[in-house]
């Protein structure tokens, strides 16, 4: 069974536990693919460069990044550049034969481009053009399987490459879901939120694991905001063929191994 591990880009998440766990799994003969994001680091670098990250609201109230050409450039610098290189090196230093790939490399993550978004500004609905994002519809699973067969641990990040050949922004949780679906893998989503709480104020009501779309329906009905995106990604992973999905606490001691053991 292949394991796809989504590690966060969020600052609060310490990757050391995840790195050690991936090393232990790979050492035990497990095929692993690591997927990471890093949206907050993109914002930080934009600000260091004197640019302002832009977020827009869609008519249904979803807030998302507006990725113009400059933002896309910084996105490439931070995700496949700094974060992917550093995570790959960190895994290698832990004995994993890690190999970093963005969705552009070998056409790993492809799909239609979205070059315009509907946004709500001052109560008006408008069309904003010049958006660089896309929707992952296809994963080059041959590439991942062949690298896994040769003993490598792929370290995957966004951008994806759109049908028009442009590298574009795509959500890393959904990239992880697409990869897990394509490989019939178990998806472990590490986050600093320990899971989905049936009652948001009561940690005892944690819903740990969903292995069917039906179980996820209950999770979806309680998930909100940030976790809503994780749940949507989980749904897509299961729909796409993933064996199971666990959303787990990245800051636990052995986050991946506990998640695989059912700890959540």
């Amino acid at each position: 069974m292949t394991v796809v591990v989504k590690v966060g880009g969020a600052r609060a998440v310490n990757p050391a536990g995840a790195v050690a766990d991936v090393a232990a799994l790979v050492d035990g003969g497990e095929d692993c693919v690591v997927v990471h994001g890093g949206s907050t680091a993109v914002d930080e670098t934009l600000e260091e460069l004197g640019d302002e990250p832009e977020y827009v609201e869609t008519p249904s109230g979803v807030v998302g990044r507006f990725t113009d050409e400059r933002t896309m450039e910084v996105f490439e610098m931070v995700l496949p550049g700094k974060l992917n290189t550093d995570l790959t090196a960190q895994l290698r230093a832990n004995g994993v034969d890690a190999l970093g790939l963005s969705g552009v490399d070998g056409g790993l993550l492809t799909g239609p481009r979205k070059s315009a978004v509907k946004v709500v500004e001052d109560g008006k609905t408008k069309i904003r053009r010049g958006e660089h994002s896309g929707k992952i519809e296809s994963v080059n699973d041959d590439l991942l399987e062949s690298l896994l067969a040769d003993g490598y641990t792929p370290v995957v990040t966004v951008p994806m490459v759109a049908d028009d050949g442009t590298p574009v922004n795509a959500d890393a949780d959904r990239a992880a879901a697409a990869v897990a679906g394509a490989l019939d893998a178990t998806l472990i989503v590490l986050t600093d939120v320990p899971g989905v709480l049936d009652d948001p104020d009561d940690p005892e009501t944690l819903i740990e694991r969903a292995t069917t779309p039906q179980e996820l329906e209950r999770v979806e009905s309680v998930a909100e905001g940030f976790m809503g995106k994780k749940v949507m990604a989980a749904t897509e992973a299961l729909d796409g063929g993933a064996a199971s999905v666990v959303v787990a606490d990245a800051n636990a001691e052995n986050p991946i191994r506990s998640a695989l053991d059912g700890g959540g």
């Binding site: 880009g9 994001g37 890093g38 949206s39 993109v42 869609t58 008519p59 249904s60 979803v62 998302g64 990044r65 990725t67 996105f75 995700l79 979205k114 315009a116 978004v117 509907k118 069309i127 994002s133 896309g134 929707k135 966004v158 574009v168 922004n169 795509a170 959500d171 890393a172």
Partner: peptide
């Protein structure tokens, strides 16, 4: 006629 745009978002 406005283009049909999915509500989708990136990272």
């Amino acid at each position: 006629t406005a283009p049909e745009l999915e509500e989708d978002w990136g990272e």
